[in-house]
């Protein structure tokens, strides 16, 4: 049986890393005991700096995170990574290959890397990811890096989990309109043009700077930075780490970090409300005689699924 106290030691003791890992497994498997444990862990969270890394497949997110870990470790900061990869919609299985690029950190006790399958959740990140962040934060990691599935265009979710969002792109992939229409310009705090040894790197940076410059930003808001890196050999990654830390300092100075944390709490609360309500109602409905009757009516053709669902929900929930 897992105990919250064991998990709390996670970033310091090898034994406790195991407890944290098992805890995340319970979360993924939707085990009822996970919720109680999360409640106990939550008061111990809040210290970690949470960084989101997103971008299209193949831009080098995992390799970049590998290099980020190295740089953060030089500063003696403890790092946890959650790398999300998609589940197959057909088999439900998944190949989680992100940590392949980070394996040199596998035996560093100050580093914890965890792959997660998206398990059918939309937007690339699931509530399980948020719950896992709670665990890692309680374990005492200074930096938590979340790598999203490389979907690129549908990942606003990351902004509801991270304090600072890095968006990775590479030179020579279409015009900047791609970036604008995706809406990711508003989500990103730091824009990374990776694989900068490829041609057109400067052009890609200029384009990003220009697009970002077109936004109206007040003095009190963080001005997004554009940086060039070659993750493969670590070029520019020290600057990237400094940029993430300056963003954190900026937010601290302006009181933005507290506001952001409150916002993330609110979003967590809302997503929990949605999930818990839905679970409870679905269990209740699936067991009710109404449900079976409605199902019979739908099957026999005497009622359509839309009217049946409407009637059942209206019968069940009335707000006075």
């Amino acid at each position: 049986m897992l105990k919250a106290e064991d998990i709390l030691e996670g970033s310091r003791k090898a034994e406790a890393q195991k407890a944290g890992a098992r805890m995340i497994r319970l979360i993924e498997d939707n085990d009822p005991s996970a919720f109680e444990l999360l409640k106990q862990l939550y008061p111990h969270t809040g210290e970690a700096f949470i960084i989101g890394i997103t971008g299209s497949p193949g831009v080098g997110k995992s390799t970049l995170i590998d290099a980020l870990i190295t740089e953060f470790r030089k500063l003696a900061l403890k790092v946890a990574v959650i790398a999300v990869d998609p589940s197959s919609p057909v088999s439900g299985g998944a190949i989680l290959g992100d940590r392949l690029r980070m394996q040199r950190h596998a035996t560093d006790t100050g580093v914890f890397i965890r792959s997660m399958a998206s398990r059918g959740q939309k937007g690339g990140l699931s509530r399980a990811t948020k719950d896992a962040v709670v665990v890692l934060s309680a374990m005492g990691y200074d930096i938590i890096i979340i790598e999203t599935v490389g979907a690129g265009q549908a990942e606003f979710d990351i902004a509801s989990l991270a304090h600072s969002v890095g968006i990775v792109s590479i030179p020579g992939t279409g015009d900047g309109i791609q970036a604008v229409k995706a809406g990711i310009l508003e989500t990103g705090d730091i824009f990374i043009v990776n694989k900068c040894d490829k041609p057109d790197a400067d052009a890609a940076c200029h384009e990003l700077v220009m697009m970002l410059g077109m936004r109206n930003l007040s003095e009190t808001r963080w001005k997004p930075v554009v940086l060039k890196t070659i993750a493969q050999n670590g070029t520019g990654v020290d600057k990237l780490v400094q940029s993430f830390l300056s963003h954190l300092n900026f937010m601290k100075k302006n009181g933005l970090i507290d506001r952001k944390k409150k916002k993330l709490d609110r979003l967590y609360f809302q997503s929990l409300l949605k999930d818990l309500t839905l679970e409870k109602i679905l269990v209740f409905m699936n067991n009710s005689t109404d449900f079976k009757e409605m199902l019979k009516k739908i099957e026999s053709g005497s009622m359509d699924p839309l009217s049946a669902a409407e009637l059942m929900v209206n019968n069940l929930i009335t707000f006075e």
């Binding site: 589940s87 197959s88 057909v90 088999s91 439900g92 299985g93 998944a94 190949i95 989680l96 290959g97 940590r99 392949l100 394996q103 596998a106 792959s115 399958a117």
Partner: peptide, 16 residues
């Protein structure tokens, strides 16, 4: 083998 296991519904961590 990793692909075959994925297709059988497993979550496969591939560490290289």
């Amino acid at each position: 083998v990793a692909l075959a296991l994925r297709d059988a519904g497993y979550e496969v961590i591939y560490s290289g």
